[in-house]
Design a protein around this nucleic acid. Structure first.
Lengths: 190, 190, 190, 190
DNA sequence: TATGAATGAGTGTTCATTCAT
DNA sequence: AATGAATGAACACTCATTCAT
């Protein structure tokens, strides 16, 4: 409360609840209570529940993209190295911002996304696309529709993250390396 | 209507709506209208909206398991062949029962699952587990936690199915074969 | 309660409250309580609060027009006689349906009228217009814009009705005759 | 802003909004925005929204009474002349202070009037009453309850003013004279 | 003096559920 | 067995009012 502005408290509370329960199952009273603010206060900062969701989605996608960039910047070495940095970025993000990851993964929110959010999704994916294209040019990554490759790797990553979150799987350096290896094998040319 | 009992009509309507809109965004009046029955009639067959969801989840998981069994029965040949049958079963199911698949994939419903449904998930997964264990014994599949391998393959499959559903990817025999190959490479020992 | 359907009870309660307090100062809970129904029940019969108002306005205008017709039907005699019948009709209506009259007079509702209601107002006024035109043709009523004549007579009538309603004035046959005479003098040619 | 004190700015904004939209449909934020002051500032000058309304009503009634006095002062000539001055005063006021007139006419505010405002109404009417009594003594105005005569003339005037405001009637010297003549005919002895 | 962020009671409205028919 | 009218708790959201600055 001392270190968090009302707006931040609301965003944090909403993020947690949207991630855990989904958009429809989260009520404004829940958010206001968890944020420790009055019900009306939310509307001083966010026009509506939907706007609040979209702000969070855009924020989260940007944070996600940034997390990937941060690890991936610098001169290009090998495609495999790039893939490693990407994967590391994914898991770092999932570890530090589990709710943001959950929000992004959850398809349930799709109905409520506005134009801005949809664009942000495209922007985010374009970053991964670049790596894939480069790998294909280098003859290292399979010549398949990029969307399919992305779906395979991200799908695996999301599901694995979910397993971590639910405690079905215990995180360890070795396991993460193995999973990365699996995903790399999935898309590389043998 | 002629060939469908009231109960079946309700289940079908609810399945479609839960899959398309999600549990919370689906109202009982929507279901009763689509099913062509009175609002109160639903309660003659299902205690509550949640029970209705759980019945559908259990049904869907059983149908999913059955679909996998059906292709996979018969004498065991190779692990690769078994994997192929499993994958074929997954896609067959997604093609013929897209709503059931969508219902199963959607994490949004998690909150509302009862004990019975959770058990059914376990049952369903045990079938896949068996194949994995066998493959590991044979020295063909990586020695990793089974949950991780399942998450990788199912995650990829769900995400790919979603891409098909949204029209981001066009289904074709060749593409399916490629995707299967990707997934197999992900889990096999090289 | 026994003799009133829910819908009628709602209409009656809403009429009373809208007339006494105005549209904005009347809440749906007030209406549901006075009608003796649940809050949600109102929405089974009326889409929204605004629709409820408009239904009442149209109903009231039609009842008003009918009340004027009823007294005024039959062969035309003199303009004065027609005026008398009109005035009698106005007061009869105000006496038997004070709330409906109040609802019609109140300009506060203007903002919420839909197309249908606006048309009904026109229809209602056209009836009075006919009498005025006839009187002007006969050289008995002043040659002034009909809207002005209507405003004068109806304005006087509404204000007098209000005075009766508030008890500022005591109704009596003689007083009504005098008021009618005043209004007639206002518009006739001397 | 330069020439208007905060208090005056608030009163002016509130007058405009109450007149145009009604008391209930006007919000305090609307008033504060139009007045160019903070929301809380209103409460430094007026205890509540209701008090603000009542201040405006009293002010308006006093301005109205003053407007009538101004034209009517001086030695008495004839009753007809006095009536003319009264009528001129009414229309002058309506022309120069349309919002104040609208506020006074609107019955919708009745619910919120306090004792002070009610007294002011009486004070205001007493002025007109005086003229009427004098006319009746002179044998020029009908011997009817004064409230009835006031209702007739003011009712006609308010309704005509409304027609002007809505553009249903075009103002002109000739029309005003005619309307005055109508009203005079309504109350004079023939 | 003046502000506007903050509040929470209250608004119009929806909907899972019940029950008389 | 089947209905759909009825309910009232709960929803998203608003706004008169307060108060720390």
């Amino acid at each position: 409360m001392a270190q968090l502005s009302k707006k931040e408290a609301i965003l944090e509370a909403a993020l947690k609840l949207f991630a855990e329960r989904g958009f429809d199952a989260t009520t404004m009273p829940m958010i206001s209570e968890l944020a420790g603010v009055g019900a009306g206060t939310i509307y001083r900062y966010f026009e509506s529940k939907e706007v609040l969701l979209n702000v969070l989605i855009v924020e989260s996608l940007q944070a996600f993209a940034e997390a990937l960039n941060q690890t991936g910047t610098g001169q290009r070495t090998t495609v495999r190295e790039e893939f490693h940095l990407l994967f590391t970025g994914l898991f770092q993000f999932g570890k530090h911002r589990p709710n943001r990851l959950q929000l992004i993964c959850s398809n349930a929110n799709e109905l409520y996304l506005d134009e801005r959010s949809r664009e942000e999704v495209t922007t985010f994916l374009s970053q991964i696309l670049a790596t894939i294209s480069w790998g294909q040019e280098q003859g290292v990554i399979r010549k398949m529709p990029a969307n399919a490759l992305i779906a395979i790797v991200l799908g695996a990553f999301f599901q694995v993250s979910d397993a971590f979150r639910k405690g079905l799987l215990e995180e360890s350096k070795e396991l993460l390396d193995e999973i990365e290896d699996c995903c790399w094998n999935a898309v590389r040319i043998h």
